[in-house]
Amino acid sequence: MAVIIDVPAFRGSISGAVAAAAERLLDNGDVDELEPVGGGARAVVTDGADRFEPWVGVVDRVFTGDCDCPADAGDDGLCAHAVAVALAAFEDGIKFAAAGVPHGDDDADEDADEPERAGLWQAVEALDQRELTELVVEQALRDPAFAARLLGRES
């Protein structure tokens, strides 16, 4: 399920220094190869002579970022590179999943399943709310562990 991000509130939550650095990266065209990944967005960000691949998305109900830069994380773990990717993704209309997976957190086995996962994501995104709800309820009735997770209980 996609989440709605309040972009003005997001911008207002970022410190002036981080926001200014992110805007500089965007204005200079240093954010490239933006793509939806893991329910969030990833891009290549060139900062001087360095290149980073930050990912942004929603994890545990918190908008967060994952960047390979050595800088201390800014607001809520978001460095300027991650904020630049977030702003570019908002502008580009990338949809964020309610539960994203940072690009560096996948196991090798999950990487092998990526084409299948992508196909399933595409199929789910094509469903309307009622169809998705019916599928989830049917699965919960067949699988008690799934039902327990759905209801927020330990299995």
Rank of each mutant, 00 (worst) to 15 (best):
A86R: 06
L87H: 01
F52Y: 15
W55K: 05
D68M: 07
D75N: 13
A73C: 11
P70S: 14
D68W: 00
P70F: 12
C67E: 01
C67K: 02
F63H: 11
G57K: 05
V85I: 09
R51E: 11
A84V: 08
R51Y: 00
A71F: 13
E53H: 08
D75T: 15
L87M: 13
D76G: 14
A49K: 15
C67A: 10
A80D: 02
T64K: 11
G57M: 08
V83S: 09
W55G: 02
F90S: 04
L87D: 03
A86S: 13
D76H: 08
R61G: 14
A49S: 14
V56C: 11
P70G: 15
C79W: 00
D66P: 00
G77K: 02
G48F: 11
C67P: 01
P54G: 09
A88G: 04
G74D: 02
V59Y: 02
C79P: 03
A89S: 14
A86E: 07
A49C: 04
D47E: 04
D75Y: 01
V85Y: 02
D68R: 08
A80I: 01
R51D: 07
A84K: 05
F90D: 04
R51N: 10
V56F: 04
A89C: 11
F52S: 10
L78T: 08
L78S: 09
P54Q: 08
A71Y: 09
L87T: 05
F63N: 06
W55S: 01
D47R: 12
E53V: 06
G74M: 09
C69G: 09
A88R: 11
